[in-house]
Design a protein around this nucleic acid. Structure first.
Lengths: 340, 340
DNA sequence: CAAAAAAGCCAAAGCGCTTTGGAAGACTCT
DNA sequence: AGAGTCTTCCAAAGCGCTTTGGCTTTTTTG
């Protein structure tokens, strides 16, 4: 059932039927109702390929997926996706993942924009002066950054959580508890979120005349194994920290294992606070010692990103609005006063 | 730069240029070279929307993503996606995720097929007599099932791992080590993989005149917390198992925690074997006691699924070929002889 | 060497929609 | 009543590609 047939069976022109369906004003309400009705009754759905060719709009949002044998997709991605999908579903938006060589995403961005394959894109895990952000904003496609970039002479729309604030609060709490030597086990420090977290910790320490020792900050890919290794190194060297802030629950697993392997305890010997993106399959309250966390649902962020992208596509949102979500500090058993 | 312009500048018809580019035989090789050359030089890329409208082919593969506030996407998904994306990239295939109400995926399948939005789809986490498999095979779109369904009177193409064989081997090893009371902490037993795994365990036990106690098999969503709870229940009741087979590494985290909480040890009191889908961020060899596993890279499966889908789209693969991958049994420190 | 076959190219008709530029009729205003 | 203004609809021109059917020109064949 295509437009032509529908129009014919209504004894109307394609023009009128099309307009009636798309809510244009220049059609009699009575006629519109007839058309809508017939469309529904016959299950007419405009062919998206045709509509797309005619309008250039695809009804999809895009994401360039860095791939490669040595490239791992962040497990946070599925949670983000859950939220994004949940919103997208209610608006009949599809998501296109365009795999790209991790070292050359530009080609892919250019392709999907030139081909008008998607109406908007989002960018995740941005770095300072992220070339994707610069590229996409010149390409002129609606977009949204999940996270933040820095160091541009232009603004751009983003959704981020207050990483600096979160880690500032976490560190401040630890300092209040008497800890003097903190360590930060962070994610890849080329990414903005990691930089912000480090900044937050440093700021809290500085406020009490303390500082983050050079060897007390690790920047690693956020795996259990790396959390373990970092912790071993931190605790086995002289000047070991009495408290650790950690950028992910998965790494925290490794931290806990390392502490235990060394015959130490949490929070007796080491206090621990980790960032929790809220996974259904791994919860901080279920750690052997319930884990204190800075908590922010990445799933909600996914839903919000979808919502804002939809708004930008339809022109409801414009400009370079940045949105920063506060992060909860949830205190559980893994923090205590510094050991004597 | 569109076809018309390119044709005009070559003083050829659109027909000829199109044919030259698409490898049709009825064009002079000399001419074809000229065309190819000019196309490359001017960076001509046929507009996919137009091509799509004309041919009905989209160059994308589809996946219907079940969503909803209460629906969690399996974290395995990202690893699968890594593999899929890696292959898809090399063939300029994009992946379309169409979010659907988890309770009504049929509408979405029908939509994406009717709209010819994608050239092929894959289905994951199938159940016996999975309605999606039945649906998609009547819809007549190329597809592949990742996993297996059962109980149909027709065949269908799939890629699966030998879950039954894997858990059979695992259980057999435990029995050989003298264990008489095994338990299985399984995933959702409405899914085929879980059924196969249970079948594997039962078969191994039966071969030695043993059986799986009714209370010794748990079927739960595969989270750390559920692994913990199941293990507590198993070990605190009378007739506690001395060995546990577990369907995921994430649940195994909970198993380990529960065992420890109960003041027991692995493998002294309980032997443990878990299935490992090979995550970069959580490795069985890094468990406090290195974990024995049945191992199969879900990432490789993703790549293979993409490869076969591409083959089916281009007509290189046909029919209902099923492919079952063997699973490695990797023995590490978490198994030992049954306690006296 | 004429007839048949093959090679190489083209004009034009889709694919199914949106949108432009009218046009006919109904309505308002002076 | 005539001019002007809405209202409501339509024919037709795209969007950029593929593909059908045909038309020349060249090559092959008996």
């Amino acid at each position: 059932m295509n437009l032509k047939q529908l129009a014919h069976m209504l004894a109307l022109s394609q023009t009128t039927v099309s307009r009636a369906l798309n809510g244009y004003p220049e059609v009699n309400e009575e006629t519109r109702r007839r058309v809508m009705d017939a469309a529904k009754r016959h299950g007419y759905r405009p062919n998206p390929s045709a509509r797309r060719l005619a309008t250039g709009k695809s009804g999809m949002i895009g994401y360039v997926l860095p791939t490669g044998a040595a490239v791992d997709i962040d497990p946070h991605f599925v949670e983000f996706l859950s939220g994004l999908g949940d919103y997208a579903r209610s608006h009949e938006l599809d998501l296109v993942l365009s795999p790209a060589d991790a070292d050359d995403q530009e080609t892919t961005y250019r392709r999907i924009v030139a081909n008008r394959q998607v109406d908007a894109v989002y960018i995740s895990s941005p770095r300072p002066q992220d070339s994707r952000v610069a590229l996409v904003s010149t390409l002129g496609i609606p977009f949204l950054v999940h996270g933040r970039s820095e160091g541009f002479d232009f603004d751009y729309p983003y959704l981020d959580i207050d990483n600096e604030g979160a880690f500032h609060e976490a560190a401040r709490l630890l300092v209040q508890l008497g800890h003097r030597r903190l360590a930060l086990i962070n994610g890849d420090d080329r990414e903005t979120f990691a930089i912000h977290r480090e900044r937050g910790v440093r700021r809290a320490l500085a406020a009490s005349g303390l500082s983050l020792g050079e060897r007390h900050v690790c920047s690693v890919v956020m795996t259990e194994e790396n959390g373990y290794r970092a912790t071993r190194r931190l605790l086995e060297e002289g000047d070991a920290p009495t408290a650790i802030a950690c950028s992910s629950l998965i790494m925290a697993l490794g931290v806990v294992r390392a502490v235990r392997d060394l015959g130490l305890t949490i929070p007796g010997d080491v206090s621990l606070i980790a960032h929790d993106d809220v996974f259904p399959w791994l919860k901080p309250e279920n750690f052997s010692v319930p884990l204190s966390t800075t908590r922010s649902s990445i799933r909600l962020a996914g839903a919000r990103v979808a919502e804002r992208l939809a708004a930008r596509i339809s022109g409801l949102e414009e400009g370079a609005r940045g949105e920063v979500w506060p992060v909860d500090l949830v205190v559980r058993g893994s923090v205590a006063g510094a050991p004597a």
